[in-house]
Computed example of a mutant assay.
Amino acid sequence: MVDSFDLAVVGSGIVGLAHALAAARRGLRVVVIDRDRQANGASIRNFGLVVVTGQEPGASRRQAERTRRIWLELANEAGIEILQRGKLIAAQRPEALAVLEAFKAGEHGADCKLLTARGTIEQLGGLNGKAIIGGLFSPFELRVESREVLPRLTSFLAERFGVVFRTGISVTDVAPPVVETSAGRLRAEKVVICPGDDFSTLYPLRIGKQGVQRCKLQMLRLAYPGFRLSSALMSDLSLLRYGGFAGLPEAGALRSKLGEQNASALANGVHLIVVQSADGSLVVGDSHHYGLALDPFGSEAVDRLILDEFKTLFGKVPEVVARWTGSYASARNAVLRDAPHADARLVIVTSGTGASTGFALGEETITELFG
């Protein structure tokens, strides 16, 4: 007898789970299929930071706002711990401060707080006062521990909604209502494919036509520094990584200044995000290198660029206790959304913002498929 479902989701990363959640909340019968036994990809190799402020105005910003609300709902419903709230951007250069001032004066800056140098240092423990000339505090960001949240969310979906998980199984063909897998055939009226950076298993030609490539990043975990962070931290380099800041006219002068003073960091796509785990250790990163085929090895020189930026803001660097690389899909647009079949949707977040926009994307896709 062939198992039958309303929806099959291919991929159990955060984007796949977001679609499963949106469907399960409608009372639909859902199965999630993944070739891995557990989440090992980009969804756990990140900061666990839900970013709202700095998202590109328009769809990305709206999706981030909605996704944030769902994370807060899940904190209550699924017992997901919010480790930090808010985000501080510490400016080191007048050009960076000008970007923050322009953002504060714009459409999405009203609820953010522009800070003096003293106010920035008082906002977050451990900062090196000599390096900072001002900052901006956003109250919207949420930080979760990704490697703990993915298993917790999986259990929640199974226990609360009866979502079925089939792991260690590859999907070989999708032709709704038939889904062919390495463990046999199942039936699903609708199918959502969330393959992350797997561009070759399903719909490789459709993905290839969208110009999607891989982005490799490097991250580190540092030992407890002796202080607690009340929020996430970003720096001048980060302002060029987010469309809500990088799209401002004032960002041109900052890019030029960083090109003069920190060309190696720009060339390696380095910016600084610092968050803190429950045990006090810090997650720090990251870098960005692009291509269709990227080696899995980290570079000590790139790690050093990240740690140099950390040292500038904090004065000293705690012991490095772990290092890793990640890989995610990247393209010009923030999301690849395609309809290879009337009852199937291909959804790939191509901006590294799955945790920040994924839940809203899931709702949008399920509404499109089921009305």
Rank of each mutant, 00 (worst) to 15 (best):
M1E: 13
F5I: 02
V10E: 01
S12R: 08
V15H: 02
A18K: 01
H19E: 03
A24G: 06
G41R: 04
L49S: 00
T53H: 13
S60C: 13
R66Y: 08
L74R: 00
I80T: 08
G86F: 07
I89L: 13
A90C: 09
Q92F: 08
K104Q: 09
H108Y: 15
A110S: 14
A117T: 14
T120E: 07
G125W: 14
I132F: 10
I133T: 08
G134L: 04
L136D: 06
E141I: 01
L142S: 08
P151K: 00
L153E: 04
T154E: 05
S155I: 14
G162S: 08
G162F: 11
P176F: 07
E180K: 15
T181K: 06
A183S: 10
A183N: 06
R187Q: 15
D197E: 15
K209N: 15
K216A: 04
L217W: 11
Q218R: 05
G226P: 06
S235R: 02
G244T: 01
L248I: 10
N262S: 15
N262C: 12
A265L: 11
L266K: 11
Q276H: 02
L282N: 01
G285N: 03
D286P: 09
L292Q: 15
L305P: 05
F314E: 02
K316W: 12
V320H: 14
V321I: 12
S327Y: 05
Y328C: 05
L336M: 03
R345N: 04
F359K: 05
A360W: 00
G362S: 09
T367A: 10
F370E: 12
